[in-house]
Design a protein around this nucleic acid. Structure first.
Length: 863
DNA sequence: CGGATCGAC
DNA sequence: CTATGTCGATCCG
């Protein structure tokens, strides 16, 4: 059987090979052709747990696509027409607000980590190298890429592709240092530039260009670095050659807004002789200057893109990589020309999945994306199709936003299987400790703790819990996380939880306001208590009891999880001494503590000291100094008013989604969408609707638009014009700089990541199954599976019987509520069977469980 | 709010 | 043997 499979596998790979194009060994001895790369990857990957999971994910995407296609079938011509009309109305508006006046530059260091390592160890030059570890690579040099060695590929596979590959371990400190050097240069051109990771940055050089116009030549002259090793000399020569070329290669200055003075170019040649170079005043020259200076300073090359907005600039920097640059003129037609045949995958934000879904609709290039705009508006969410529209029109951010406040902080680790609960708890605690440390560095406290688990089958789960009082210390976080972990352990009991990754995240941070409030109210509150002269005589027991009472009454019981008691008992399978006591009674500073204090104070009812109290729940000052009343108030707050608190916080922290579409008023036309009419009919009651009760005619709509001619386009990204634009903030790095734990490497991906190296057959060739001879229009991945299945008819039958091809029917079994989601079957509509394309993990657990005839449900999952 | 997914680096 | 870590956004229930 095993042999059979092996035969099947290799014949499958060969089949793929044969159909995928026959250009053998174009790269000659120096590399591998696509077929060989795919074959090797396939061979080393097949059968692994990872691979199986990839298959599953692939299937899920296929189901999403299927669902989308079904939706598409139901769309009537009329609906499409109406959508077209509406979208085009929006297009007009967007077009009107097109802003071409910014000059955005995207700088991207070439193969950054690899380049740094090569620079520091010339031995590596000319060799294929990658940076990372045997389990994961961050980047590779261009030589290695010819062998198919790419970022986000595990090292051991890379080694098979390229046995001579040298893998250099990561050295973040070094990269950071180089990055800093580069940033020093960038800051001269735009003090507000926006770094992205260590190797990329956006600049808005509009101001610089203006000033630059008046700069004397000497200010634009830069010298070659002369103190040199042999290598460096060589580099310099190459450099000057390159810039010489670039500098004089008929640059399209004709349509430049900032046309350089004639003299700029004329003198350059002479200056070169003197070991220096003078750059012109236009954007391209300025960017060449930046790249030149970067190379002189760091011996590393960068690529750059220049365009009217960030999206375009980024795509431009990709164009002439490595060590090149490209500019899109700030003209509408230039933008559209650039996009015309550009594959959507090149667009930042369009990843593997979106690409595949759009491809199913026949959309590959940006112009096709535009052509299908009406259809897309019916098939995708509003955020999505608006984004698509922006893309196809070449619209993007024309200014660089400061990083907003961070929204979450997390840490996670991958390890070889851990299945002992005890180890899992201590690991969890460790993660909480690290996280707490980082949180405190930034003075953050959050209300939501999320636990992330990945089992040995690579299935990822997250479990979150939001508490009332914010957490920030190890103990506080762990108090929440351990419960989440506990529930997951219970869930699979008596089988062990077999995990390969655990992570902890804290989110829902308090705003500055809230922090101050909390601080003030707590301290004043406690101070009040102290002045009353309260004594600590509470026994732990009574605390616990009070605690439980409160929790039962409190909002959803979310904070004081009902399961706490159960968990207390359950955790005795851990080392009793340490764990139980630590798990349960450590939280002197945990949220619980607050309640304790509350009780202590409020218990002292007969005290008669005059003080103003601030309620720790609603933060309101209490007019009464009567402790009994205060006590009652707090009780009320804890019981009833929580909703109010929650809501007000919700309101203040959430922006409303702006809706730019004029109201969909055409009731006489059929529903705009099969399913989501709500999204077309905007919630935005913009003036236009009142002015134009029936915005049916095109003239009317044109009217609407000209009424507010230069209305700033509100970008789909809400932050763009957010209220915090004015907040002058320094750029603080969001990344946790973690330098501990050498066996848990932290990697960073800088280029061509996207994990798309995995079976991505970019070619469009139709795959024909060598067994059943049918054309397979699926991905290589699915194709592979198909052939496997074909090779074994019996298996096919069996799978069919077990309903493995879920295109038809299977129902949720509420008995398998793995995710803790109580999803009853209030829906009896049979068509619901089709509605389950977006399988959640828990759902797919039930699916799998069903497959196995419910013999085992969860066990097999964590097997 | 919680959970999953996507996408970026 | 051996398939990352961190973050934001979005969608759905």
């Amino acid at each position: 059987m095993d042999d059979m499979k092996k035969v099947g596998n290799s014949s499958c790979s060969d089949g793929v090979l044969l159909r995928m194009g026959l250009n053998d060994n174009k790269a000659g001895m120096q590399g591998l052709d696509k077929d060989k790369i795919n074959k090797i990857i396939m061979e080393t990957t097949k059968g692994s747990r990872f691979y199986e999971n990839e298959l599953k994910k692939d299937q899920q995407v296929n189901q999403r696509i299927e669902k989308m296609m079904q939706l598409k079938e139901k769309i009537t011509a009329q609906q499409l027409l109406k959508a077209q009309w509406q979208v085009d109305k929006l297009v007009l508006e967007l077009e009107q607000s097109r802003n071409l006046s910014s000059t955005i530059v995207h700088i991207d260091m070439d193969a950054f980590y690899a380049a740094v390592e090569i620079r520091d160890n010339p031995e590596l030059k000319e060799k294929p190298i990658a940076v990372g570890s045997m389990s994961m690579l961050s980047t590779s040099n261009y030589h290695a890429r010819r062998f198919g060695v790419r970022a986000a590929m595990p090292g051991f596979i890379a080694k098979k592709l390229c046995p001579h590959l040298t893998i250099v371990p990561l050295n973040f400190e070094k990269y950071s240092k180089v990055s800093k050097e580069v940033r020093e240069i960038l800051a001269e051109y735009d003090p507000n530039f926006m770094p992205v990771g260590l190797d990329e940055a956006y600049l808005n050089i509009a101001e610089h260009l203006e000033e630059r116009l008046n700069w004397p030549e000497e200010k634009r002259r830069f010298f070659f670095n002369t103190e040199s090793t042999a290598e460096k000399d060589k580099a310099d020569i190459n450099m000057s050659a390159k810039f010489n070329e670039d500098g004089y290669s008929a640059s399209p200055v004709l349509f430049e807004e900032n046309t350089p003075l004639m003299s700029d170019h004329a003198e350059k040649k002479d200056e070169l002789v003197q070991n220096s170079v003078v750059f012109g005043t236009n954007a391209e020259e300025a960017v060449k200057e930046i790249r030149f200076r970067i190379e002189q300073k760091t011996q590393l090359t960068a690529s750059a893109g220049i365009a009217p907005n960030t999206m375009l600039a980024k795509m431009c920097s990709d164009r002439n990589k490595p060590n090149g640059q490209y500019r899109i003129d700030p003209k509408r037609h230039a933008v559209l020309d650039f996009l015309k045949d550009l594959p959507i995958r090149k667009v930042p934000g369009i990843g593997k999945v979106t690409e595949k879904m759009l491809k199913a609709l026949g959309i590959v290039t940006c112009s096709e994306l535009y052509q299908q705009r009406a259809l897309l508006s019916l098939l995708f969410s509003e955020a999505s199709w608006r984004n698509f529209l922006d893309i196809s029109l070449g619209l993007g951010s024309t200014h660089l936003e400061k990083d907003g406040e961070r929204k979450s902080m997390s840490t996670e680790r991958t390890f070889s299987e851990i299945n002992a609960a005890e180890d899992q708890y201590s690991l969890c605690r460790e993660l909480c400790r690290d996280l707490a440390q980082e949180l405190q560095k930034e003075g953050l406290k959050g209300k939501t703790v999320t636990l992330k688990l990945k089992n040995v089958n690579f299935e990822v789960k997250t479990r979150a819990s939001t508490v009332l009082s914010s957490v920030s210390t190890e103990e506080e976080i762990f108090a929440v996380a351990k419960d989440l972990l506990g529930t997951e352990i219970d869930r699979v009991a008596p089988h062990p939880l077999r995990i390969r990754l655990m992570g902890v995240r804290v989110s829902g941070f308090l705003s500055e306001e809230e922090k101050k409030y909390q601080q003030k109210s707590i301290t004043s509150f406690l101070k009040s208590g102290k002045e009353i002269g309260f004594l600590r005589l509470q026994s732990r027991n009574s605390n616990q009891e009070y605690f439980r009472k409160k929790s039962e009454a409190s909002f959803r019981g979310s904070f004081f999880d009902k399961k706490r008691a159960a968990r207390q008992l359950n955790s005795e399978n851990l080392s009793p001494n340490e764990t139980v006591s630590k798990l349960l009674f450590h939280d002197r500073k945990s949220p619980a503590n607050f309640v304790e204090e509350t009780k202590e104070v409020t218990d002292l009812q007969d005290s008669n000291v005059c003080k103003i109290f601030t309620c720790p729940v609603c933060f309101e000052e209490q007019s009464s100094n009567n402790l009994e009343e205060l006590n009652r108030h707090i009780d009320e707050c804890l019981n009833g008013n929580l909703d109010t608190v929650e809501i007000s916080k919700y309101d203040s922290s959430r922006e409303n989604t702006p809706n730019f579409l004029p109201q969909c008023k055409n009731e006489n036309v059929d529903e705009c969408k099969p399913n989501r009419t709500d999204q077309l009919a905007g919630r935005d009651q913009s003036a236009s609707t009142s002015d134009n009760p029936t915005s049916n005619s095109t003239e009317k709509s044109a009217q609407i638009i000209s009424d507010k001619p230069h209305r700033e386009r509100q970008p789909s990204n809400l932050c763009d014009i957010g209220s915090n634009v004015c907040m002058k903030q320094c750029l603080y790095p969001k990344r946790i700089s973690q330098d501990n734990e050498d066996h848990f490497e932290k990697t960073e991906h800088t280029e061509e990541t996207s994990s798309s190296y995995f079976f991505e057959a970019k070619d469009d060739s139709v795959l024909v199954c060598p067994v059943c001879n049918s054309e397979q229009k699926t991905s290589l991945l699915s194709f592979n599976r198909h052939v496997d299945i074909c090779l074994n008819e019996g298996l096919v039958q069996e799978l069919k019987e077990k309903n493995y091809f879920p295109s038809k029917t299977y129902h949720t079994e509420n008995s398998n509520r793995i995710g803790g989601l109580s999803r009853g079957q209030q829906r009896t509509n049979p068509s619901q069977g089709t509605k389950r394309s977006g399988l959640t993990a828990s759902q797919s657990v039930s699916k799998k469980a069903k497959l196995s005839n419910s013999k085992h449900t969860i066990e097999m999952f964590f097997k």
